[in-house]
């Protein structure tokens, strides 16, 4: 699924801790157009639940979350 998604921007917040990843994600989503996809790379163990919660609250759509080698990769589609 992910390999077909066109990524408009990648946000690398590896090494940052809460609330860093969520705050940077909130800023970065504004730098892509509605319909485009933001890729977030994070190492904070809270990044997955926090960005999921942020997306629910703000109405953005999470397309995919994968976790590998301590890195969480989240694809977020800007829908509004």
């Amino acid at each position: 699924m992910s390999s077909q998604v066109k990524i408009a921007k990648t946000l690398d917040v590896r090494g940052m801790y809460c609330p860093g990843p969520v705050m940077e994600t909130a800023k970065a989503i504004k730098q892509v157009q509605v319909g485009e996809v933001l890729e977030v790379l994070a190492t904070d163990p809270a990044a997955k639940p926090d960005i999921e919660a942020w997306a629910r609250r703000t109405g953005q759509q999470i397309l995919e979350i994968t976790q590998e080698g301590g890195v969480t990769r989240i694809l977020i589609k800007r829908v509004k």
Binding site: C18, P19, V22, P45, E52, A53
Partner: peptide, 12 residues
């Protein structure tokens, strides 16, 4: 149960 941050807490 889980390791989370402020966004998860506020949501829950």
């Amino acid at each position: 149960d889980d390791v989370v941050g402020v966004a998860t807490f506020l949501d829950r």
